[in-house]
Each structure stands twice: as C-alpha cells, then as structure tokens.
Design a protein around this nucleic acid. Structure first.
Length: 560
RNA sequence: GGCCCCAUCGUCUAGUUAGGCCCAGGACAUCGGGUUUUCAUCCCGAAAACAGGGGUUCAAAUCCCCUUGGGGUCACCA
C-alpha cells in the first residue's frame, strides 16, 4: 500500500512541506484559517439539475467519491442550480437515483444535510452577494455598466484587428457622481472581476502537472449577473472554499475555467484546493466528449449501435414507449436495461484509471482501496460498449441463482410473460431457464430473448429464416419430427438426461446424424435457431408443450 | 482563430515521475484451431501499437526541442 502512495497523496493537505499549490506567494492567509491545517480529504460533485445523470458525469462523481473513500474523507453533493427554472425535484430526482442505484453515498448534501449547507446554490445567494460586496469594496471587482451591445462591438473590433479581446473597462473611468447617478436610476450593470493583467496564473494539477495561464490575455469575467445572481465561477469558488473542499476533481473541460477561479480564490484570500482535471469520457471509438446533443450521430456509429438496438428491443416490451426517453448517455439507461451497478462501476473506474498492468475485474472495495490520483490517465477515453458488456457478463456470473432470478423476474412481469414471478411454479420455471441460459445471461433483460419458455404454445412465433432452413427446406425433417414426437409422447422420464439418452438412441436407430434432427427439433419447440441446450430446453418446456409445438410446426409446413 | 490539454495494438490500458528488466505486457473486439454429434460457453493460437523528425545518452516508448494530428475552451451556461 505504502509504495502505492503517490506523488499526489503525499501532496495532500496535512503535509505542509509539500504543498505545491502554495506557490502563490501573493495569497494572504488569514492567520486563524484552520483549513490550512485540515487533513481531511473532502471532495464534491456539483451537478446541475438537468433531469438525467450523464454517464461521463457519473465517472467524475465516482472518482471524487473514490478519492474521498480511499482517504477516509467526505464526499459532498452540491446542487448547482444557479441558472435554474425547471421543477427542481423532477430534475434532481434521476440524479440522486443514479447515485443510490450505484451505491455511491454522500456525506453531505440533499436529503442528508450537513454542517456546511445549504447544499443548493439557489439558497446561497447571500453568501455570494457578501463576497461580491467584499471584492467591490477592495477594488478587486467592479460594477460594469457597458451594455451587451457595447461589449459585443468591442469583441468584434478586437477580432477585426486580430487582437485578443480585453475589456475596455470604461466603467472604471466613471466619476463618483456618475456612479451615484447610475445607481440611483437603476441602470443595468453586472459585476466583473478586475483581472490583474500583469500576472501569470499557475496551477499545479494532480493529473496535468504544472499549467500556466497569462492573466493579461483574460477578459474580466462577469461574476454577478444583472439580476444579482452569481455565475458558476464565483459560486463554485465560494462554495468549495466554504465547504472546505480539499480536492476539486472535475472533468478537463473545466481546466480553462480554472485560472478565473484561481483569481477569485486569491482575491478573496482563500486557500486553493488541490485541482485534479481528469479527462472526459469520450464517445465510443472517438476522442470527442460524449454528449447528449450528438445522439443522432451516435445512432449511426457501429460501436454505439448495439446499445440503441438493445434499447429498441427491450424498452417497448417493458412498457417504455420511445425507449422511455432513455439513451446510453444516461445512467438510467443502464439501470433500466438491466446492467449491474458492479459492472458500471468497474467499467467506469477502468475508463481512465487502472490498478496495474493486468487487473480488469474489481469490486468497489478493491477500487476504493487502490484508487489514487496519480494513476489517472491524461488522455480522454472512449466508452467501449463491448468492454462494458464483458464486465457486465463477469459480474452477472458472480451472482447467485436467487439474485439472478430477482434481477430477471421484473422483466418477465413487465413484458406480460408471467403474471406473478413469485409463484412457486413460475419461479421454478424462471430458475430453470436461467440455469439453462448459463453465460447467455449477461444483461438482466436478456431473459426476454428466451420468451419461448413463457408464451402459450399456440402463440409461439417461429423465426422465418430458421423455420425455412431447418424444417421447410429439409427433406427429412418433418418425418423425423413426427417419429421422434411419438417417442417424446410416450416417455415417462422428461429429465434432460433422459431426453438426451432418448434422442441419441433415436438417432442411432434411424441411422442418421444428430445434425439431421436436432436443428429441426429446436426450431419446432422454441421457434428459434439458437437457444439454450437442447435437452434442457425440452425438459423445461415439458412433455405436453413439446408435443403440441412439434405438431403445430408440422402443421405450419402443410399450410405454407 | 487565441489560450490550454493530450498522443503506446481497432478500443481500454501497463510501462513515462526515478532511461537499460520492453524488438513493448494485459484486457475487449477480430480472425484461426480444438472441445461441445445442438446453441452459448470454454480452451489453445494468430494478427495487431510506441504519430513524425531532430537532439541528449553507451542506452530513449521513457528526457529535451520542433512538426503533425486529435480534443477542450473562449457567455449575464454549468
């Protein structure tokens, strides 16, 4: 374990000698700032209530959670609803549900509260206003009366001259009396941070290393809107500082926001957290950030197609029209289609992080134990549906039979294939089918592909291609089926082993190859060309069904 | 376009911080063979990468520089 302790963990708070991020000599530390000596790792995830949980966001949340748990620290959930008009509980519900489903608990946040609340930014306006007032008073921010049109014109002018745009700062030239007059007449204004243009901003990122930005290239960012509400960059800094977040672990698209935030930290005299900008989750087979806005493109992607196909095959059958509005960018998609939390967690953890050179399958406990920031990969990683399915297959196989039944039964019920899966004889059948499925059961909803065991004999649908190939176009198939059916009808032992024996004897007596009958038999009783082991299949269906189905199949050849 | 980040098999990655153990290891996917007188598994095997160019060095995937490519971000969004 100790040897695993990496550069970063050595730099975590509690070790004042190796605080690379304290190279900001210009920061004034309040003498009584306890947080300077805090040793608790506190991480946070701050989703905005969008109505769904993004799978990439989930990975970011997971890394935060892992780092907190690895260090015995706290994980905080905070809701970024500063720009929020929709129904909050409706928009937040699916997000919290995703955390609950995966078992990622939070120590502070919605539903659980905590000492550093409130945990909704919309309820923290006083804090933001107070900070802005402080910045204004200290001359580190200014009230800007420039209209959006003016700003736009300035930008265009700069771009015409091929120059980098910087605020003209006209409002700084205003006289005392003009300012008073503007304020009195309620002229619209925003508050901007006064960027110290002579600085270099340095960030020591746990994943990226040392990154520098030139402040002289940065426009003055708006920190307070005209309506008095804060912007993300302001709110996040104040919240992180006040909530004593030790490590800000977030996706790399935030790296370019970081200099603004560092300036705000400095202006407010706050200690900087350790930043860790992890790569974003990319779309399968690419390097582009996975985005809900590109769903139409994904539908055509060969890697992604399987997931959409699966959704189309499963969701309508369980009563979700239009796939229930679910797509593979959403965590809920995986939950509803029958993935296991273990598989999603394992897969997400391996996306951009590894334990060593060969370990693939890891329980959450194993991941927590071994998770360190220095093993995070720098490059963006594409979500790989095939590999995810492989993880899923592995974890599904770890489940007890009882658990598998538990996971699969709801699908059969929702699809109307069984009335009540808890009834003993129904449960027994489900159990036998699952045993017969063996590794064919990967995702819980896969059981729907074995509906032949649950539909009434007369409603069994025959796969056209398989029926034609194995029965219709096979010269001897019908005759053999007819003959073997008689034997099936007469036997009194319908166990898989006995049926195995029976068919082998039949084949021998007829002097034919197994292949000449078994395919036809399979299609006749199951309607499909592939399925579980033949004898398990017959045995589960039972004598009466097998006979009826063979008769029906033979009948169908005569009608055609 | 400015700024910033990134670069090992098709994909996810190990190896890069402390150069030699690497003519580069594992996994997924692919292909071939075997087992299963059915389907799926399973087993064995194959193919498959250090973006390019310069340096430094006895030695470079690893350090430095340049080029190229990919990506992110440039809001009174988060």
């Amino acid at each position: 374990m100790i040897s695993r302790l990496n550069r970063i963990s050595r730099e975590t708070p509690g070790c004042p000698e190796c605080f690379p991020r304290l190279s900001f000599t210009q920061i004034a530390f309040p003498a009584n700032d306890k947080s300077l000596f805090m040793s608790t790792v506190r991480t946070r995830f701050a989703p905005s209530p969008t109505g769904y949980m993004h799978i990439g966001g989930m990975r970011t949340a997971l890394f935060n959670w892992l780092w907190a748990r690895h260090n015995g620290g706290q994980f905080i959930l905070r809701i970024d609803d500063t720009d929020q008009e929709r129904n909050l509980s409706e928009a937040l519900g699916p997000i919290l549900q995703a955390f609950k489903w995966l078992g990622l608990d939070w120590d502070e946040g919605p539903e659980v509260g905590g000492e550093h609340g409130p945990y909704f930014q919309s309820e923290r306006n006083d804090l933001y206003r107070g900070a802005v007032d402080k910045l204004l008073a200290a001359g580190k921010a200014y009230r800007d009366y420039d209209t959006p049109e003016q700003i736009q014109a300035d930008r265009e002018a700069a771009s015409q001259e091929k120059k980098n745009y910087l605020n003209i700062r006209r409002s700084l030239e205003l006289t005392e009396s003009e300012l008073e007059q503007y304020a009195a007449e309620g002229r619209p204004s925003v508050v901007r941070l006064l960027v110290p243009r002579d600085q270099k901003i340095q960030i020591d990122d746990a994943v990226r290393g040392h990154v520098e930005f030139v402040a002289g290239l940065m426009p003055d960012p708006v920190i307070l809107r005209g309506n008095g509400t804060p912007l993300y960059n302001l709110a996040t800094v104040i919240d992180d500082a006040q909530m004593q977040i030790s490590h800000v672990i977030r996706a790399e698209e935030h790296l370019s926001n970081t200099p603004v935030q560092v300036l705000i930290y400095q202006a407010l005299g706050y200690e900087l957290p350790q930043f860790a900008h992890i790569p974003f989750v990319a779309a399968p087979g690419g390097k582009e950030k996975l985005s809900k806005r590109k769903l139409d493109k994904y539908r055509k992607s060969p890697q992604f197609k399987k997931m959409f196909d699966k959704a189309e095959a499963v969701f309508p059958r369980i009563g979700l029209e239009n796939a229930g509005g679910l797509d593979p960018v959403m965590v809920e998609y995986y939950e509803k289609i029958g993935y296991l939390p273990e598989a999603i967690l394992n897969s997400l953890a391996r996306l951009g992080w590894s334990l060593d050179d060969k370990t693939e399958f890891m329980s959450l406990d194993t991941i927590v134990e071994n998770f360190t920031l220095d093993r995070i990969v720098k490059a963006a990683a594409g979500l790989d549906p095939d590999k995810l399915l492989n993880f899923q297959s592995h974890w599904m196989n770890q489940l007890s039979l009882e658990d598998k039944i538990e996971h699969c039964s709801p699908y059969l019920e929702k699809a109307g294939l069984v009335q009540d899966a808890s009834q003993p004889e129904v449960k027994e059948r489900i159990s036998r089918v699952i045993v017969g499925m063996e590794d064919r059961l990967k995702v819980a909803s896969d059981i729907l592909e074995f509906d032949e065991f649950f539909v009434p004999d007369v409603q069994l649908e025959y796969d056209d291609k398989a029926f034609k190939k194995r029965i219709q176009k096979s010269e001897e198939a019908v005759a053999l089926l007819e003959k073997f059916k008689e034997q099936l009808a007469q036997t009194d032992d319908f166990s898989a082993a006995a049926l195995d024996h029976l068919l082998h004897e039949f084949v021998e007596a007829e002097g034919i190859g197994m292949g000449q009958i078994i395919h036809a038999l399979r299609v006749a009783v199951s309607g499909k060309g592939t399925g579980i082991g033949m004898f398990d299949c017959l045995s589960i269906l039972g004598q009466a069904s097998c006979v009826k189905r063979i008769d029906r199949a033979i009948g169908l050849t005569q009608n055609a």
